[in-house]
Design a protein around this nucleic acid. Structure first.
Lengths: 111, 111
DNA sequence: TACGACACCTAGCGTGTCGACATATAGCGC
DNA sequence: GCGCTATATGTCGACACGCTAGGTGTCGTA
């Protein structure tokens, strides 16, 4: 049944991560926190989804990683959006908009 | 890369099918056509997605199937929304709304 | 010293979508 | 009658994604 819990991401995870990183370089753990916070707890990204997604995005050349220290003095892998990643984000934004419009068209249909 | 072509349904297929059937009993082939037409060609449901989806929805008790003749005199399996299916559709509508709102929250974030 | 929060990671599983293929009938032009 | 297109249903294998469940290690605090 796709889940078993409550939160689904339905293929929007890449888009969301790219958007968060576009706000400024950040590390995985913090990205998940921001996502949860901004979405008012709707998105609760599990680590088993988060890290594979980040590696995926890096493999595709949309993110770049660099080890740095956090404010709290721990090692963390900071991700930055590449030029390619920014272009892809823009394309994904358009795609998402088109998708939601198309769905809205169907859902608004009465008869 | 999620696709390779152009159209993705991102887990909205069940919702869309249920909605179309809610407009009136219909058979698979026609459901796909209506979906394509209403969405102005955005959704082009492949047969390899359509029929498994219909069987899934039937298995879960959200749709009921019955063989009938179409207007053009061919045999076709007409699907009807069950009471359970209608409840599920309503729940899915709320879920979709919540999801899009949450995504919108993230995407609107500037800073 | 024990615990929770921080921060990273992987393996295995379920499931949904797609592409390709298979089947069959109705209606049309030739 | 023959071939073609549209209608109509279906299966199968590959693949990508997200989830569960496990693992490592550090820091701060009670």
């Amino acid at each position: 049944m796709t889940q078993g819990k409550a939160e689904y991401v339905k293929g929007t995870l890449d888009l969301l991560i790219l958007k968060i990183v576009a706000l400024g370089p950040n590390h995985g753990y913090a990205i998940a926190q921001r996502l949860q916070q901004i979405s008012k707890d709707f998105f609760q990204i599990h680590q088993g989804s988060l890290y594979p997604a980040l590696h995926r995005l890096e493999d595709r050349g949309w993110l770049e990683a660099e080890w740095k220290d956090t404010e709290t003095g721990r090692d963390a892998k900071f991700y930055t959006l590449t030029r390619k990643g920014r272009k892809h984000l823009e394309a994904e934004l358009v795609n998402w908009e088109r998708l939601t419009e198309a769905v809205a068209l169907v859902l608004r249909t009465a008869e």
